[in-house]
Design a protein around this nucleic acid. Structure first.
Lengths: 166, 166
DNA sequence: CGCTTCTTTCAGAAATTTGTGAAGTTAAGG
DNA sequence: CCTTAACTTCACAAATTTCTGAAAGAAGCG
């Protein structure tokens, strides 16, 4: 392990982190290519890369990058920018933005809640199964409320640690 | 929609919920068969089913059930019971247990943190990318701490809603 | 002990997912 | 306008995943 100088970026080290972190994201249920693209962006100095740069670093075709980026943008984990006067697009992770996106996982929660409500309704709130589903539903509703408060606390905490540059 | 009587269980309604909820879990990254098995257990009156019952309701082979159940048990989302004096096994969801399992997702968090620390270390804490990774790491560390407290609050809340039968 | 019942393992077939190359689309710049 | 650079879409090939059937492995019970 060479001590990393702030001056030069070791592509080998970058790649190692990117692939390792992406693997963890994959294990948590994310698709491979979006995970790799996302990790690459996280590990970039500017926080933004072009399609070509991503393709080169990850050794994949433009088509693959395009698909991955579309997915990430839908999940609000990256945003697209177009530098005016160029058809080149840049994809960027705003640090903040993506915590909020993780929180957007509560879009997932909402869908779970909907499915559970339908279950309670059709099985009957008074049946044992219905009661179990109700309780599960209550859990998710509780979590929903907590997450918002938690993110608020994070913002305060973050400011204390890093200052509030956005 | 017929009004559900507490007396009879409509297999059609059950199946509808099971497949619907399972689909949501799949979309959130869970494998299909474990998701279906889990949903079936959630929707059962007793909260427990045998391998044969699961196979019949889901129309899959014993092998498929076996694999799914192994996965769920590893994730601590169900527990296995063996009624003494029978080689028949029952798989059960303890409502509580599985919230805690969802929380166990913080095993996932821990691995993310490990990967991020490695990244900060190898890219250099003073580099722009290193700083971004540090902040991300700080976020996850923060979440870690919050989750525990949140689950504590949930238990209190739950007790208020349902009483504390475990 | 051996029979029977249930569960697990394993190899392979089927289905799904994933990434590529090539053609199509959009928009900048001459 | 026409050219050209970039991104996207699409059909297909490859790889991976998922489930099954069959055989092997436990464990109760006579």
């Amino acid at each position: 392990m060479a001590e990393p100088s702030a001056r030069e970026r070791d592509p080998e080290a970058v790649s190692q982190f990117v692939e390792g972190f992406a693997a963890q994201l994959v294990e948590a249920g994310m698709q491979r290519m979006p995970a790799r693209v996302f990790a690459a962006l996280l590990a970039s100095d500017s926080g933004a890369m072009t399609s070509a740069e991503l393709g080169e670093q990850l050794q994949v075709s433009p088509a693959a990058v395009s698909g991955a980026v579309r997915y990430l943008a839908q999940q609000h984990m990256v945003s697209r920018e177009r530098e005016p006067g160029s058809r080149r697009e840049r994809y960027r992770v705003h640090s903040n933005q993506w915590y909020e996106a993780l929180t957007n996982r509560d879009a997932v929660l909402k869908r779970w809640e909907t499915a559970l409500r339908a279950g309670v309704d059709s099985l009957g709130p008074a049946t044992p199964a219905g009661r179990r589903l109700s309780e599960t539903l209550a859990f998710f509703e509780f979590i929903d409320g907590e997450v918002a408060a938690m993110m608020e606390r994070w913002r305060a905490h973050r400011e204390k640690l890093f200052g509030d540059d956005a």
